[in-house]
Design a protein around this nucleic acid. Structure first.
Lengths: 365, 365
DNA sequence: TTGTAGGCGTTATCAT
DNA sequence: ATGATAACGCCTACAA
């Protein structure tokens, strides 16, 4: 059997006799199927797309052969001619973040249901990488983009210009620009959390924000202030501090709060991750949550209910937001214009990390 | 100047009828750039790939024009001719899971650095969806695949057959098959955790596993048993229970443990998520961690250090594992064969959720 | 150093 | 109902 190709000694395969079609038998093409089925390749194409234009029997035969041969139409060739890749990009700054990944889940699920693939563009908070990621998306001719928890900022403009492709933002919006976005009621949500604390008797309430300049942080901070104002509590600048998403920075900020002459009895945190750091810092100073200091979060990440005490927080239906963003994007991609801003209601989930304000010495004095 | 090639309208080829270029000004193609630069399109191609074969001046001019026109070479056209998409797929069962997303981060980062794009294939633990996802990958002609925390099982074979493309598994392996995988020392890690408990004086130690049949669960369970055996502690079947990743199931399993006549004084959990449920269940029965029951996890997810008490766990360098998997995949894709199994050492991180075994009445009797 | 002539695997547009 | 044939946008010989 080994002799079949002319009895040449083994090992001289490198000769220039005649070029083999390919090293390994490459994937069958539509023409291969056409040949086997004794039809033209357009007919195969039609059959495989269930076109009514093709005879039922031939269609069946073609499908059978295609199946046998393990034929898979090349999406890349198709994309070339149809000019649509059926691919969307998911641009995230940190996938390694429960909020982003929950949103990603919703996006991926919805995209898959409609036969769209999701290209992951993880920018890692590095501007240069972000730029490169955008170039990539342009070259790959994605049909649309979902951006989540990013600080695209000015970059976003570049995006929109360069590739002219529909974009939907999740929980970040650029008020000046006409951008499609799915956002939660950040302001109302944080306001509800703050009012909850006020009802519990708190007066010295801190806000632990994020210095990365997210639009959502600004909105939540505004909600916090609104609640204070409504209750006639003056805004104390020293009670509004910032972390940066890293536990160290957050803990430092909280320590600063607790060193104040009149420390807060409650802390509203920008989100659950921040709250995690805050609670740890509070405990590190020998104080208890919620007896000494109440804490609220935002997001309702999976772990919130499992903390001890369980975290009072504002729920964000993250997965659903991803779904909505994707559905919105589908509309835009099909040429319909849809609501530019979709706002979702926020729901306060009261758990164990908030309690009545402790009686303070100065109150009793 | 633009008239040079005979004044023919753009887009006319082979002397057939003339057709309009496109509705909206579509992205410029390589030919558009060629025309503007008064060169042929292969020259443009060479210039943009920094080929030394092209005159430096012309190259500069071409690049300038390309830049001005916002030209982006189409990856889909390139993929068609080169037969490589520079795209890998990341197949995850639940992206919505801290372990998976950390791995995804490492994969995405490494891929991006080498100019590869990552296609997200989220199977959502639904077999039908998983099948569809595989089809998609085949059609899209991905160059390689990374699979993580999936129960591909038999599916994996389908994968390997259908698309013949390199695959690397993260923390899951199929001993019978020759598969490339990056895994942590599951057995040794869990053994270390169990031995740590034994050193603290525990004798009744439970194992809370996962009934989804992950290979990693089997290995960790084996490590647990090995530690017991080595210490001369008999394996008590009633102490080996299972959850399924859902908090409810885990809590139920732990409640069952605590209802035993001689309940365990420590619980080794399959992973940190499981531990989260276990700790909650323990508290729900009015017991304290670690005073009444010690708990260990596995993974060292970001929240582990922030729990109260902080979780003693076995660290898994998830992001790094993603990087390794990707590097491994690169090797395979470039034709080199690499180590089939890369095993990473596990590191026990002792924190506050483990303490000396409590004195029991029966011990004192 | 540059240009000409295919061809990658599809779908689209005509004929028949 | 089916088949020729021409794109789609790029790369890679090979020729000049």
């Amino acid at each position: 059997m080994a002799e079949r190709d002319g009895g040449k000694p083994a090992g001289v395969a490198h000769g220039s006799v005649k070029r083999l079609p390919a090293l390994a038998a490459r994937q069958p093409s539509i023409k291969d199927i056409a040949r086997l089925a004794h039809v033209s390749h357009p007919t195969v194409s039609r059959a495989l797309q269930n076109s009514p234009l093709v005879n039922a029997e031939t269609a069946a035969k073609i499908r059978k052969i295609a199946e046998e041969q393990g034929y898979r139409a090349s999406a890349v060739a198709r994309g070339l001619v149809t000019r649509r890749t059926r691919t969307i990009a998911l641009l995230v700054t940190m996938l390694d973040d429960p909020f982003s990944s929950a949103v990603a889940c919703g996006v991926a699920e919805t995209a898959a249901d409609r036969g769209y693939a999701v290209l992951l563009a993880n920018a890692h908070a590095d501007p240069e990488r972000e730029r490169r990621a955008i170039e990539e998306l342009a070259e790959r001719r994605v049909d649309g983009i979902v951006v989540t928890s990013s600080r695209v900022g000015a970059l976003y403009l570049l995006l929109l210009k360069a590739l002219d492709v529909p974009i939907v933002l999740v929980n970040d919006q650029y008020p000046g620009e006409l951008v499609h976005a799915v956002t939660i009621a950040n302001q109302e949500g944080m306001r509800a959390a703050t009012e909850h604390l006020i009802e519990l008797g708190h007066r010295r309430i801190a806000y632990l924000g994020d210095r990365n300049g997210y639009q959502s942080d600004a909105a939540r901070r505004a909600g916090y202030k609104a609640a204070l104002a409504r209750a006639g509590i003056g805004f104390a600048p020293e009670l509004a501090v910032e972390g940066d998403g890293r536990p160290d920075a957050e803990m430092e900020a909280v320590h600063a709060l607790l060193r104040l002459n009149t420390p807060p009895t409650a802390v509203c945190c920008y989100n659950d991750m921040t709250a995690l750091g805050a609670m740890r810092a509070i405990r590190a100073r020998g104080l208890r949550v919620p007896q000494d200091v109440s804490v609220t979060g935002f997001d309702d990440l999976f772990f919130a209910a499992y903390l001890a005490p369980a975290l009072t927080t504002v729920r964000q239906p993250m997965r659903q937001m991803g779904q909505m963003a994707m559905e919105n994007l589908f509309k835009l991609m099909s040429g319909q214009d849809s609501a530019a801003q979709m706002k979702i209601e926020a729901e306060l989930i009261v758990r164990g990390s908030t309690a009545k304000a402790p009686k303070r010495e100065e109150d009793q004095a």
